[in-house]
């Protein structure tokens, strides 16, 4: 702005620009304030009694009802759901990475003529919306569980089917992003390792995987985030409430509100669902966000 004044063009447009800029800056900070206020408001509600939530909608709690978290975890089943979610997310993301890291390395660095088309095949999968799978997924899930119960194991857990589809639906994105990372790595170290007599697989495991660490972290965190917040697959495939995940349990909790009116407990549930991801974001978020935007820009 001071440059403008020096140049001296006190036109109408510059006054307008100053005004617009000011309004925009104020609105941006207003937006930040709303986000922070929203987080605080949710937290306050989670430690209020239901009566307090309605009588005192904006202020801090008059009495701190930490018991809300206990009710949410036990009576409303969010404890079991949390265990289901953690196990499902950890197992699925582990399998996703075990499949996609080697495949991406092979496609990016080892592939002959077939690599290009296969990368396109994976990336085409990303423009297919989830809804294209909703119906086949339900039918396959029912069929698979009947087949396993009658012919193979005698028992089946729909959570395994959920994990299978979590893996399958996350592969296109994971492979595609990791291919980009592996392609951008320098090849000198790979050659040096081969000259030192390391086998091709050892070169991959001890040289290339560590080099791609930032890309692997980004993809891992984005998968964790996506699967933690996933709702529809569990809603479609897992009818048994004891086997459902946090988001679905939260929905069920909400649906019961008309009978229980335990709003404090409901917001404690919201905190239980949201807090781990907010903490994850503050821990690794910045790095992941910059990794992600770089990946998109390339």
């Amino acid at each position: 702005m001071d440059v403008l004044q020096k140049v001296g063009r006190p036109s109408l447009s510059s006054a307008l620009s100053t005004f617009v800029t000011f309004v925009l800056k104020v609105s941006l900070w207003g937006w930040v304030a709303i986000n922070l206020a929203m987080l605080v408001w949710i937290f306050f509600n989670s430690v209020k009694s239901s009566r307090d939530i309605f009588a005192n909608p904006a202020g801090p709690p008059t009495t701190w009802e930490w018991g809300n978290f206990w009710t949410a975890l036990t009576t409303s089943g969010l404890g079991v759901a949390a265990i289901n979610t953690v196990v499902l997310v950890v197992v699925s993301v582990a399998v996703i990475m075990l499949l996609s890291v080697p495949a991406a390395y092979a496609l990016a660095r080892l592939g002959g003529r077939s690599a290009g088309p296969i990368v396109s095949l994976f990336s085409a999968g990303m423009s297919v919306p989830f809804q294209a799978f909703a119906v086949p997924m339900v039918l396959i899930s029912v069929g698979l569980s009947r087949f396993m119960i009658e012919w193979v194991t005698g028992a089946w857990d729909p959570r395994i089917t959920v994990a299978i589809f979590y893996v399958a639906l996350s592969l296109p994105f994971s492979v595609f992003v990791l291919v980009g990372y592996f392609r951008s790595l320098p090849s000198e170290l790979e050659e040096a390792s081969a000259l030192d007599g390391a086998g091709a697989f050892r070169t991959f495991r001890t040289v290339m995987v560590p080099l791609a660490k930032s890309g692997i972290t980004t993809v891992t965190v984005l998968n964790v985030l996506g699967l933690w917040n996933e709702t529809m697959i569990v809603l479609l495939l897992v009818p048994n409430q004891g086997m459902q995940t946090l988001n679905v349990a939260l929905l069920n909790f909400y649906s019961d509100m008309q009978y229980t009116s335990d709003w404090g407990g409901l917001f404690a549930g919201v905190v239980i669902v949201v807090a781990p991801m907010v903490l994850l974001y503050f821990w690794v978020g910045r790095r992941v966000v910059s990794g992600m935007t770089e990946g998109i820009g390339k």
Partner: peptide
């Protein structure tokens, strides 16, 4: 689906 909220990025 949330997975693809992120996943579609690079696509």
């Amino acid at each position: 689906m949330t997975i693809a909220r992120h996943s579609s990025a690079t696509d």
